[in-house]
Design a binder for these strands. Structure first.
Lengths: 166, 166
DNA sequence: CTTCAATATCTCAGTACTGTAACTCTCAAC
DNA sequence: GTTGAGAGTTACAGTACTGAGATATTGAAG
């Protein structure tokens, strides 16, 4: 989480009343508001799925299986961005709730599918629309045009940051 | 985490080749890219502070104390957005490393300050510039103008989402 | 066939927190 | 002075993961 507004290095010419901010200043401010806004929206999303006894990661698995159909566990992992151990843990929990089941992969016996059970399918069909409305409310401080603009910028940012080696 | 692109409800007139997306579609896409881009940048920030044996939350405390001076624990909590228990835990850890110390508040004996020790001050002075460069690199996929634009949008989003009751 | 690097999943100890409840202290009202 | 609501901090149990290593399987090369 976030650096707050930073101390200004006193370098540079004081050419005018305001000083141009450095590349680092600009970047840090972006990072702070990115983290804060993500957290603020996440709290709404979490509260919504928590009403059904789910975490955001669990819901993300249900949702991706609902919209894409059965997926290999490794594919699920890449879609929802958790660790390999995390997928095992989450699918175990969802299986324990009767919402997801593992299926064998006939072509590769190392691999296994995760798939929604009928109960899981029914649950997602019921709660997904509510969840979508809840998210829409959480981001309603931005107009639709602003949301589209923010989406374009964040998509570009996310792709480039993910591509940079750590 | 993130909903993927959603199944389209087949309602509405098919007036043209492309259909206008619903408010929920737009919101969900924003939420997905917000979560993903935050995670992607956070991985860089985490890796940077991990080189010094710190978590992001620990670093955030060091940084805020460095730039604002001693702060009441409750103020720290509000700045870095963790739970009250989290502040106690984090300050305990930083105190164990000799970077932060608690000080009594003479005016209110319920409250206590957190303040950097000389060692903590020295550490932040050393690693903060590196950290800033590391963040600048992580967000360098966006031009400076785009970063400023994204910052303005996310600030607005964060404030409105935080103000909405959960 | 054998070997072996690569891939897919699982196991499990460890971590960084959160949330609830308890404790201490303050301050305003009576 | 006493009472009580409430603020500030802490203790502790619980949670949702991560990361490293173990296990199983594949497929390509020799």
């Amino acid at each position: 989480m976030g650096a707050s507004a930073t101390a200004r290095p006193t370098e540079g010419r004081s050419t005018g009343r305001t000083r141009a901010s450095t590349a680092e200043d600009t970047a840090l401010k972006l990072w702070v508001v990115l983290a804060r806004s993500q957290l603020a929206v996440a709290r709404h999303a979490e509260a919504d799925v928590a009403r059904h006894g789910l975490t955001l990661a669990e819901f993300a698995i249900l949702e991706v299986l609902y919209h894409r159909g059965p997926l290999l566990l490794g594919e699920v992992q890449r879609k929802i961005l958790v660790s390999s151990g995390g997928v095992t843990y989450l699918v175990d929990r969802l299986a324990g709730k009767g919402l997801v089941e593992r299926r064998e992969c006939t072509h590769d016996r190392r691999a296994r599918y995760a798939a929604l059970t009928p109960a899981g399918e029914k649950l997602v069909a019921r709660i997904f629309p509510e969840h979508a409305r809840s998210i829409a409310r959480a981001v309603s401080g931005l107009s639709k045009a602003e949301q589209l603009q923010a989406t374009a910028l964040l998509r570009k940012l996310g792709i480039s940051a993910a591509d940079l080696p750590i």
